[in-house]
């Protein structure tokens, strides 16, 4: 009885291999499977013989059955694999079609630059401080040592209110507020919006943004200022940028300097943007004028420090090579999407 079963299964096994090897479509593979192990399949049909097998032969018979079924499964897998991609046309996607994006917004280049500057200065130990845009003459000019008839105070250049207050022309006002509120050491940067009475054009707007820094402690030097600015230049524009400081004049610092960065367009070789000088004027800086410290009740004999200030729009224009300031306030969606 056992031998008869084994013989039949052997025959079927040979047929199984043949049948699946010949199958050339998913449907034929499916048909082959039905033919052997389906409800009326030839292997299924041998199942009743099991009942007639003597007890001692049953394990061997069961094993043969399982082997035959396993062969079907194995041949079917092989056939499927052999037919592979060509057979599974229902699953093919055009991977070049656009994906379904998870929309992300973009940051305006001006605030992007502000945030980047803040991040760089925070790493150097600065804290970001903020202050109001409507300010007093004292905070915007007097305490910053601006001479009483300094042109920047003129209503031709600065917006005034009836009550004598003004729209701040610089964020140095935040330095004054901070120094009045706390004693040194002080190490802050203050980004923000400022206002000057310029007729809007490609390089001037009614408002603009600045970031100013202040570091007052017992032993802060001009050399510390240079290191800070150099580190900023390299973080913001890249490692290759060099800086130079030129003596200059500002009422709120003494000594004062302008700081030039090597031209980020031509690498210092000379081009139209740097007017062939290889240098770009980026910021004004210096050691805080003793008068400014006295004005906020800090003793210049005990404390000294540096301050600097730069225009966010200028940095942004240089970084992204934007030629017209007006783009910043037009907010054209195609412009915004580029950042």
């Amino acid at each position: 009885m056992l031998n008869e079963l084994l013989e039949k299964l052997n025959k079927i096994s040979a047929a199984v291999e043949k049948e699946f090897a010949a199958a050339s479509s998913a449907a034929e593979i499916e048909n082959a499977k039905v033919k052997f192990t389906g409800r009326n399949g030839s292997i299924t049909a041998l199942a009743p013989m099991m009942g007639k097998i003597p007890k001692e032969d049953k394990p061997a018979a069961g094993k043969a059955f399982n082997e035959a079924k396993a062969l079907v499964a194995k041949c079917m897998e092989e056939a499927k694999e052999r037919l592979g991609e060509s057979a599974s046309s229902a699953e093919s996607v055009d991977v070049t079609l656009p994906g379904r994006k998870w929309p992300m917004g973009t940051q305006h280049p001006v605030t992007k630059t502000i945030d980047e500057c803040c991040a760089i200065f925070r790493r150097m130990g600065f804290t970001v401080a903020a202050g109001p845009e409507i300010e007093t003459v004292a905070n915007c000019f007097d305490k910053l040592n601006a001479p009483i008839d300094h042109p920047s105070r003129d209503p031709k250049d600065t917006f005034y209110f009836d009550d004598g207050r003004l729209m701040r022309t610089q964020t140095s006002t935040v330095q004054i507020r901070t120094m009045l509120a706390q004693k040194p050491p002080i190490r802050i940067v203050s980004p923000g919006r400022c206002f000057r009475r310029d007729t809007p054009d490609a390089t001037h707007g009614v408002h603009f943004h600045q970031i100013e820094g202040l570091y007052v402690d017992r032993h802060v030097t001009l050399a510390d200022l240079k290191s800070t600015l150099k580190a900023f230049a390299n973080e913001f524009f890249g490692e290759g940028v060099t800086i130079r400081m030129r003596p200059h004049f500002f009422p709120f610092t003494e000594p004062s300097a302008e700081c030039d960065f090597s031209c980020v367009m031509c690498g210092g070789k000379g081009c139209r943007v740097c007017k062939n000088s290889g240098w770009l004027e980026i910021l004004g800086c210096g050691m805080v004028n003793p008068n400014v410290l006295r004005n906020v009740d800090i003793d210049p004999e005990e404390w000294q420090g540096f301050a600097f200030g730069m225009g966010i729009e200028r940095l942004t224009m240089l970084k992204y090579r934007i030629g017209d300031l007006r783009l910043f306030s037009e907010n054209d969606f195609r412009f915004l999407k580029q950042f």
Binding site: E133, V206, L336
Partner: peptide, 11 residues
């Protein structure tokens, strides 16, 4: 959230 930032004038 998918929004693009604008910066408009104060005046």
């Amino acid at each position: 959230a998918g929004l693009c930032e604008c910066v408009n004038g104060s005046f």
